[in-house]
Structure formats: C-alpha cells, structure tokens
C-alpha cells in the first residue's frame, strides 16, 4: 500500500497523501476546528475580525504550554492533576521574590524553579515510592493550593516595584503575533522534535504502550518518567509565569477554577489516550484550540455560562466519540 505504483504522476501521490491524511485523527480535529470557526463566523459578526483570533491565541497560550507537559506525561501513562495549583505557586513565588529582592530576573528564575522542584517531588514519589500518580497529584493539588492559601492568607501579592517590562510582555507582540503565543509555539515545536525525532521521545511512547515490555527492552522507565514529571510541572510553571505577567500579581486562586480539567479535556480531545502510548502533540494543540475557540465564540455571542458548559461538554463527547470511531475504523483497515 505504501509503494506508489509506477507510471503515476506526483499529483496522484499527493492526492493519495491527502486522502490518507484525511483518515488521521488530526484531520478530524482540523475539520472540527474549522467547523467551529465557520459556525461562529456565521452566527456572530464580531468574530469576523482578525483581532479576535490574536486575542484567542494570547488567551490560550498558558493552556497550550501547560498542555505540552501534560501530553508528554500522559503519553507515558502518568498524570499530573496539580497543574492548576502550580500556577498559583509560581505566581506567588515570583512576586514575593520581586518584592523581597527588587530584582525582576531573580523573581522570574525563582518562580520558574518551583516547577522542576515540585515536578521532582512528584517524580520521586511516583518512580521511587511507586505511588499512583493520579492520587498523588490529587493530593498535591490540595497541598500546594493550601500552602499558597496559608502563606498569602488569601490576599493577592501585589508587585510593589511595578515591573512594567514584565507585565507588558504579556500584551506585547512580535510582528502581529502575541509574545506569549510565540513562546508557546517555540515550546510546542521543541516538544514535537523531542517526541518524534529522538530516542527519548520514542521511549515515551514505548513506556505508555507497554511499560513492562519497555522495561524489559532496557528503557530506563523510572528516569524517563521522572524527567517527564519535571517537564510537566515546569511547563505549568511557565504558564503560571505568563498569567503573572498578565495580572502583575501573585494571585492565590490562580488556576483554581478547573484549569487542570480544561487542559486535560483539551489533551484528551486531541486524542491522547488516558491509558498512554497513543496520540500526538499536534492533536493536543488542536484540542486546546477547539475548546478555546468554542469558549470565545460563545462569550462573544453573550451565551450565558451555563449554556457554555453544556456546549463544551457536548463537544467533548462528540470529539472523543470521533476518536473511538476512528480507532475502530483503523483496526478494521489493518485487518
């Protein structure tokens, strides 16, 4: 099937490529995304302006960046539910160090460092102590949030120096593209290269596919998982940093209204299997975009929040059904 038959032109090769692509998971998602965009284009005139889409990309950058880490971790069959609380840990740490040292860079470094530290703890508990990652990170979801509450006494930490360079970074653009989105794209591309072009990336898929087999074949399962926990909390810390730029504040409740659920929903919508080993980062990006665009469109239409919830819920069921349908077809095709 993969061998092109002789005597046919490049044109039909391309056509064949396209038709094959159309059967992939990503194609279904692209179509879904386009459908959402077109639907809102028709229903809501204000979506017919460019700025709405740039706004959207700026808005979803934190979700996108956090989703990179979550995707990589889920591909290896593990979870991190604590990313929402990480946003607050990063934000509060950053601004506290701002105020304590009057040094912007020290604050940024300290804030970002919280990610690998927390991720390292998760990694240690899961790989060394053999704790279940879902329950462990459910615990740290509460533990981290609680510590932020205790430390801040539920008062937002205001940046006393007013580091406007820091705050402006959120709203500034590179060409037409918002800076946070540029950062997100760079990180996505990096992660894509790691996942598809390196031994490390292949090993992640191998572990998620069959951990015992991966172990037997000599893959350092524990080390890789440890690194993935660090990457996941690290990418959540970068998200938290972006939100801190946006708000200029270490906000104790940052990410508390279901950030982890929105990100995981996007990742699953993108086709990453909950059991690991299956799916791609491109799918995740599309999943996050679909959810973001749906939310934005509904907001612009002035649909009230409860209806937004129902629509988002339905879209999730639809998309995941699409994936399971796709899985069945591809099994059928393989036979």
């Amino acid at each position: 099937m993969a061998v092109p038959s002789k005597g046919r032109g490049g044109n039909s090769d391309a056509a064949r490529g396209i038709s094959r692509w159309l059967l992939t998971r990503e194609a279904g998602l692209v179509i879904l995304l386009l459908a959402v965009v077109v639907l809102f284009w028709i229903l809501e005139p204000s979506t017919r302006q460019q700025r709405v889409y740039w706004d959207l990309l700026r808005e979803i950058s934190p979700n996108l960046i956090a989703a990179i880490g979550v995707t990589m971790l889920m591909l290896a069959g593990e979870f991190d539910l604590s990313i929402g609380s990480m946003l607050a840990v990063t934000g509060v740490t950053t601004v506290v160090v701002f105020n304590g040292t009057d040094n912007m860079w020290l604050g940024i470094i300290a804030g970002l460092a919280t990610g690998p530290i927390v991720g390292g703890i998760h990694g240690y508990l899961v790989t060394r102590q053999k704790m279940n990652s879902l329950v462990t990170t459910l615990g740290s979801l509460f533990a981290l949030r609680g510590m932020v509450y205790v430390y801040t006494n539920k008062t937002p930490i205001v940046d006393e120096n007013g580091f406007y360079d820091f705050q402006d970074a959120y709203y500034n653009n590179l060409g037409p593209a918002p800076l946070p989105f540029v950062l997100a794209v760079i990180l996505v591309v990096l992660a894509l290269i790691v996942l598809t072009q390196t031994e490390f990336g292949r090993n992640i898929y191998a572990i998620g596919g069959n951990e015992t087999a991966a172990r037997v074949s000599g893959i350092k399962v524990n080390l890789i998982k440890f690194i993935l926990f660090v990457i996941c909390a690290g990418s959540a810390a970068i998200s938290g940093m972006i939100l801190t730029m946006q708000t200029g504040t270490g906000y104790f409740d940052s990410g508390s209204s279901g950030f982890e659920l929105i990100v995981i929903a996007g990742v699953v919508l993108g086709g990453i299997a909950l059991s690991g080993g299956k799916g791609s980062l491109v799918g995740t990006v599309l999943g996050i975009l679909i959810l973001g665009m749906t939310a934005k469109g509904l907001r612009l239409m002035g649909v009230n929040t409860n209806m937004q919830l129902m629509v988002t819920g339905s879209i999730m069921i639809l998309a995941v059904f699409m994936h399971s349908f796709h899985d069945r077809i591809s099994i059928f095709r393989k036979r």
Binding site: S46, Q49, R51, V52, D55, R58, E59, P62, P156, V158, L243, Q246, T247, G248, T249, Y251, D253, S254, S257, G258, F259, A295, K296, R299, L300
Partner: peptide, 29 residues
C-alpha cells in the same frame, strides 16, 4: 475564573462596547 474574566474584557473590547462595567474576580490581579 480570573482568566475568563480578563478574556471577557478583551472580548468586549473586540466588540467595541461604548462602556464597560466590571466586577473583578480579584481586584489586584
């Protein structure tokens, strides 16, 4: 949801409302 609140502000700007009434999720942030 703080993020949703700030996004909604952007959305009203995109729609070019004449005036905005704002109830903050958090005043400092």
């Amino acid at each position: 949801d703080l993020q949703a609140s700030l996004a909604a502000v952007d959305d009203y700007v995109a729609q070019d409302v004449g005036a905005l009434v704002f109830t903050p999720v958090d005043e400092a942030a």
